[in-house]
Structure formats: C-alpha cells, structure tokens
Amino acid sequence: MELVRVEQLLEKYLEATTTVAEEKELQNYFSGKEVAPHLEEYQAMFAYFSGAKDEQFTKQVPLKTRNNFIKWASVAAVLIFSFGMYWQYQATPDYTQEEIDEAKMVLAMLSNNFNKGTQSIGHLNTFSDGVSQINHIDHFEQQTNKLLRNE
C-alpha cells in the first residue's frame, strides 16, 4: 500500500470515520514488515488489537438441565409416600360372612345361658318367703310370753 494512502487512512482512522474494511487494510499494512519508521506507534497499536482478538474463552459452562428432574422426582416421592400412608390406614380387617355368622351364634348361646342363670337365681325368692314364715313363729312366742305374765 502506498504511504500516502496509509497516511490518509490514518487521519480518517483517528477521526473514527474509516469503515471496517479500511481498518482491515490498515491492520494488514501494519502487520507487514515494511512499516514506515515514523508510523511505528501505530504498529504497536494494531499489533495489540489483533493480538487481543485471539484471546479465547476456554472455561466450560455448566448448563444444568438436571435441576428440573430432581424437582419433579421429589414431588413424585412425596406423592407416593403420602398415598402409601393413606392406604395403610384405610385397610381394615375384612370378615367373611361365615365368620360373622359364627360370631352371632356364639353371642346367642352366651345370652341363652345367661338367661338360664338368672332364672335359677329366681328360686332365692321362695327362700326369703320361707324366712318370713319363720318370723311368724316369733310372733307366736311373744303371745305365749304375754299369757305367762298375766297368770
């Protein structure tokens, strides 16, 4: 590139009126070996710019997608657990018809026998009747005592 053109471009460059393409031209010129000595300071500038462009981001970015899975898994776990508890308390022992009948029969027998027992206790009443009749003997004795005193 001619020196005159370079100088023109540099002037525009400092006023920031160059296009990207023109700046590339300058970049090329200054990365070459034949740079006019009075433009040395630009060489450092452009070398710095092109050097700065080669820096790269090498770190790995952890893009997490598992987060969602864990969230929903925990929700599911809670649901399963609470359903389990629910069923556990729901399950009452089931009796078959036979078992119920048998239990009814046993209870009926029990009440029958119990009634028999109370009937036999009823005989105690006749005993107390007898006792009251013996009380009449006391009465008889009192009368005889009275008669004896009168004599």
Binding site: E41, Q43, A44, M45, A47, Y48, G51
Partner: peptide
C-alpha cells in the same frame, strides 16, 4: 516482532 512486545504492554 519481539521488539514490539514491550510496546504491546504499553498499549
């Protein structure tokens, strides 16, 4: 351009 390295630091 070894001689430029110093200038680069300056820039």
């Amino acid at each position: 351009q070894v001689e430029l390295n110093d200038s680069l630091n300056w820039v």
